[in-house]
Amino acid sequence: MRLEYFELVDRIVELDPDAGSIAAACVLPERSPVFEGHFPGHPILPGVLMIEAMAQTGGWLVMARLRFERMAFLASVKEAKMRRFLVPGQKLRVEARLLHDGSGYAVATGRILAERMAVADAEMTFRVLPFPNAMLRASMLAAAARVAVPAELRPDA
């Protein structure tokens, strides 16, 4: 995870776009400016970044289902719960499951696990819109390759 670049998904390890499920493996960095402020002497991952990790994982699922024809933008988060602290160096599994594939929106649940223990969960709604420009789409496709979205789901591969 590169927290300061908002790259919170390291590698997708399971992805079934038709069934609507995804799982990602992530490792918290040992050092990050984020930990210097949150908190001095007690570095833990901010809860908002736990939500962001679930949102990015869910976003990859939504975009993979659509073969990257559209972009998923986080629109709302409900019932977010941060149950445990996450510390530098910790290994995570981030999961998302599609609840509903609507017209122009999607709803998914997210969950973070560490050492098989539930760390966080939330329900998220995404607006699903055309990419606003070619630069963003190209950037997302490059990121999709980096996080190991299977080539058959990426139109550029």
């Binding site: 629109a75 709302s76 509903h100 609507g102 017209s103 929106y105 709803v107 709604t125 607006r127």
Partner: peptide, 13 residues
């Protein structure tokens, strides 16, 4: 528009 997404989700369901 954001609340309407929630309404649409509930109607769809």
């Amino acid at each position: 528009s954001l609340d309407f997404l929630d309404v649409a989700f509930a109607i769809d369901k």
